[in-house]
Nucleic acid binder design. Structure first.
Lengths: 210, 210
DNA sequence: AAATATTTTAATCAAATGATTAAATAACCA
DNA sequence: TGGTTATTTAATCATTTGATTAAAATATTT
């Protein structure tokens, strides 16, 4: 292993450093509010290097945005299509995985959803998310459960919307809820993590309600 | 009624025109992405008038932000403190009111939550939202219901978080859900409005689950 | 009507910001 | 090593953007 290789493994490439810095700043402040100079500073590099490696702020952003959304959807599709888990287990997996994931990157949901909303040319339309989820095993299992009268709500979109709402919204509205409740960050995190167990129970009860 | 007064009533003041334009643009694009020139154009006025009436972009924004958050919280507090409604009825009122309200201004939730997140000096701390909600009749009724074993989940914050999640998140993630489902705007709106009836049923079932 | 105050406009400023350039430095290779 | 390529830097550009100014237009008061 040459020295240059070792640097790439142990430390990180300048290119990677910039990308990671950009990711951090974009996640926190969004596209419009981040300055290329913020990214340069965060990465500890000269401003010109950003354009040297990535041509423009917009190209760098598009790359990160694409990776973020793709990663999010890919994980979702993987869970929803898991052959070895029941519908109930999938609910547990979604809740558990995303609560842990978002806990590590709390700004991701509002970042993604804000930027998707702005994005007029439609990043979503370029990705094959539609069939990946609408034709997932999760949806088939839901359909079966409806047929067997295990679930009353026949629309699988309500099912998925409810699950994601309960998982994601508390993070998005965290500052609001902390302001209301007076809980500090540690206490709030504890509350959030309780939900890994609670959400599957709630979802189960909801979907049987009539 | 003089002519100048009539103008103020029928038409609108320049000042009001600017404020309404600013509201529209800020809601849609957020603080960082809106240009004072965007607001001027939307209002059909000269750029200098914005500074003449409101001194700066930031002051104009702060004013709109304060009104928005105050309005939101005030309505919430009013519903949660309604002496004449049961806990269940309050859930219905919240769902019904906010679904109608956000339907008319779909960008409000993500706007508010994004900007609250940025706001480092803490707009929330200046408002008396804490006691207004934590000491609300809604929370007292919840406590009673827990005592009477009508509700299993003892934490009222989970209760409120769940309710708001189910109401608000579908709007925030609307572009995502439309991308996933392939529904057009009309179809999606129909889905959202179904939730006015469904959410109270779901909440009821959830909170009794164990 | 004349004088005064208010509102609006066009022109301009200064700072911020995304991007480029040419030169310097470091890495690589024959 | 010496030459070539790749990386990095400092300086600078051109635009954009928030804000100001002085003058013009309009409304109000005396």
């Amino acid at each position: 292993m040459t020295k240059s290789r070792e640097v790439k493994v142990v430390d990180t490439t300048t290119e990677e450093k910039i990308k990671e810095a950009a990711r951090a700043v974009f996640y926190k402040k969004g596209y419009a509010a981040t300055r290329t100079r913020d990214i340069a500073e965060e990465a500890g590099i000269n401003l010109a290097l950003l354009n040297y490696y990535f041509r423009s702020k917009e190209k760098l952003f598009d790359m990160i945005m694409l990776e973020t959304v793709t990663g999010f959807m890919h994980t979702m599709a993987t869970i929803l299509n898991n052959e070895k888990s029941t519908l109930e287990k999938k609910v547990e997996l979604v809740a558990s995985h995303y609560i842990d994931f978002i806990s590590k990157e709390p700004n991701i949901p509002i970042f993604m959803l804000s930027e998707i909303r702005n994005n007029s040319d439609g990043l979503l339309k370029k990705l094959p998310i539609r069939q990946l989820i609408m034709q997932s095993l999760f949806f088939k299992q839901h359909q079966e459960a409806v047929a067997k009268r295990k679930i009353t709500e026949p629309n699988p979109l309500h099912f998925l919307m409810n699950l994601l709402s309960l998982v994601v919204f508390p993070f998005i509205a965290q500052p609001l809820f902390q302001g209301i409740s007076g809980l500090n960050e540690t206490q709030f995190n504890k509350l959030i993590h309780e939900r890994k167990k609670l959400i599957p129970i709630w979802i189960k009860a909801m979907m049987k309600a009539k």
